[in-house]
Nucleic acid binder design. Sequence first.
DNA 1: AAAGCGGGGCT
DNA 2: AGCCCAGCTTT
Length: 355
Amino acid sequence: MAQTASTQHSEIAAIDAGAVLDWYDRHARDLPWRVSPADRARGIRPNPYFVWLSEIMLQQTTIAAVRKYFAAFTSLWPTVENLAAAPLDDVLVQWAGLGYYARARNLHACAVAVVDQHGGVFPSTAAALRDLPGIGDYTSAAIAAICHDEVVAVVDGNVDRVVARYVALPSPVREEKPLVRATVQQAVPKRAGDFAQAMMDLGATICAPRRANCLLCPLEPACLGTKTGDPLAFPVPPAKVEKPHRHGHAFVIRHPEGKVFLRQRGPKGMLAKMTETPGSPWSDTETAATFPFAGDWRAAGEVNHTFTHFHLTLTVWSVTADTPLDEGWWAEETMLDREALPSLFRKVLKTSGLE
DNA sequence: AAAGCGGGGCT
DNA sequence: AGCCCAGCTTT
């Protein structure tokens, strides 16, 4: 098919969209929120609510991690109206363990905005989608392309890598976003949704982070990364920063009647509004434990957990008592799945002998 | 422009 | 023990 975009950006290597689509027609991944290229050719359109939900869940996350959450959310809340009507706390319970909890708060705010401001129908253009909570450059483009074939560049981490290799980008991708976007934009065909998903599938299955199966790649003929003999050298990694190590104490208060004391975290910062076991502030140095009340506190072990920008070691202390703290509640030890507990605090409870 | 924000799977 | 993942928001 005609690639007419060559003149204006002669310095940018053209991506052969026809070859990419041909590959996608044969090798598209089958995903719960996706409409296959064959069905799309038959006029079947994806459900924008499912597409949006999957895109939010997939931000900085893997498909393997998302599958169960997507199934649970669509089962509990089949429509955006259902999700908007749910209490935020219920959404946080279902999101617990998936991480980046601002996504869950924005997810709920976005559902409410779609219902209240758009009559329950997701906007159809990337520009309008971009104004909703939790929807940025990538997600707005992805939804508009996948649901409505808007001709926009959909650039996620997969596409960054494919393009960085394709043009043998000598500097970190974050410094060359405009070039990457322009390279994709000039290639977007009429089948924009299939093309967007094809490029991501290509990055996930052929042009993977530590494995490049160039022999099977539709972009191989013009790929400069392959020609260098070492496509895995791209993308060039940014300078890495060392993660500091922080320390703290966690207090597991076990009621004699089979309950454990939990409380809600504050509205800002790490794990905001999520449920936690009581504990000390997290410090750059090791400090002695200051127990919330006198009792037979026993050391249960340590929990090590790594966040995006620091390592954390919590010393876990356990006591059996019926003494509640100022704010919080007693949770049945057999019902902890109903609590909005991040993985860190599930580890704490497990270390104390619960779960 | 840079920093803050989770968690798990793969190598 | 790193690296990376269908990034967004705030400062």
